[in-house]
Amino acid sequence: MVMDSPRPHEPARRDLDLLVWDAPNIDMTLSSILGSRPASSDRPRFDAIARWFLSEAADHEVEGCVFTNVHPTSAVSLRGWIEALRSFGYAVFARPKVHPEDDVDDAMLQHIASRRASHRLRRVVVASGDGRNFLAPLEELHRAGVRVVVLSFAEVAGYAQESPLIEFVDLEDVPGAFQVSLGRTRLTALPPDGGWFRPTRPMRALLEDSGPLEHPHPVPAVEAPAPAPAGEDRPRAQPPEVGEVGRVPAPQGQQARTG
């Protein structure tokens, strides 16, 4: 039997697990989820992300890359963050943010293509909720035999959850990624015994609002009962059932959906 072997002028390509992180997208999404600029305790821990990534890499070569924009006014403050990332083993690609179109998506896709040419990609993890730019390239990678994982938040990464070719992992399900629960309304990740969602502001704040109060969504109409026969009491219509409100703790060890 003839064994396949690389030609002398074609060195064997090494297996690679690649993680690419879209920092502008993740930061924007986190701000949207929290409704405000994230505090340091609200931001993901990149050391925990690295440990999770390494947990399925076995002895294959690994590479973690963070792609970020640098506004002229934030260059000094970002230096410490970038140095911390490098100390965790991440390479960092930084692009000046001078114009609105100065994004990092093209650089991320180019890097994935470059690594695909130089290595045999085994697993690609993309941390981004941007389906417009990543859906088609990632599905094409899957068809080429690469395991593809999207790491983001369920609220924005519908493209990954709906694709049968892409695995999705919610960032808050990565062990140790956040110091505190983000307090999100994750109705698809409720504990078996239920849980609470806390109010986002005091009820008495409604008295400070000007103008008529409006429901965020129309209240379901209650169907009027049929007229009661003569001589019988008319039954009263029952109001729609109202669910309790509180906070649900982040689930532990949720399994990712696979394509």
Rank of each mutant, 00 (worst) to 15 (best):
W21L: 06
D22V: 03
A23K: 05
A23G: 01
A23P: 00
A23C: 08
N25C: 09
I26K: 02
D27E: 10
M28F: 12
T29V: 04
T29R: 01
L30Y: 10
S31T: 12
L34C: 07
L34G: 07
G35H: 07
S36C: 14
P38F: 11
P38Q: 06
A39F: 01
S41N: 08
R45D: 06
F46N: 13
D47E: 03
A48Q: 07
A48M: 06
A48Y: 03
I49L: 15
R51C: 01
F53D: 12
F53Y: 13
S55N: 06
A57R: 01
A57P: 03
A58W: 13
E61N: 04
G64T: 14
F67Q: 12
P72D: 09
S74K: 11
A75F: 03
R79K: 13
W81N: 10
I82R: 12
E83T: 10
E83M: 07
A84V: 01
L85V: 03
S87A: 15
F88Y: 14
F88E: 15
A91Y: 00
A91H: 13
F93Q: 04
F93H: 05
A94M: 12
A94C: 15
R95T: 04
P96S: 06
P96L: 10
K97R: 05
K97T: 01
P100C: 06
P100S: 04
V104H: 06
D106N: 02
A107I: 02
M108N: 09
Q110R: 11
Q110L: 14
H111T: 08
I112M: 15
I112L: 08
S114R: 11
S114P: 00
R115L: 02
R116A: 04
H119F: 12
H119K: 03
R120S: 14
L121D: 09
L121W: 10
V124Y: 08
V124N: 10
A127S: 02
S128Q: 13
G129V: 14
G129W: 10
D130V: 10
D130Y: 06
G131E: 02
R132I: 02
L135C: 05
A136C: 02
E139H: 06
R143T: 15
A144T: 08
A144S: 11
G145A: 14
V148I: 12
V148H: 01
V149L: 13
V149W: 14
L151P: 13
L151Y: 09
S152V: 12
F153G: 09
F153W: 14
F153N: 11
F153A: 10
Y159W: 05
Q161R: 15
Q161Y: 00
Q161P: 01
E162K: 07
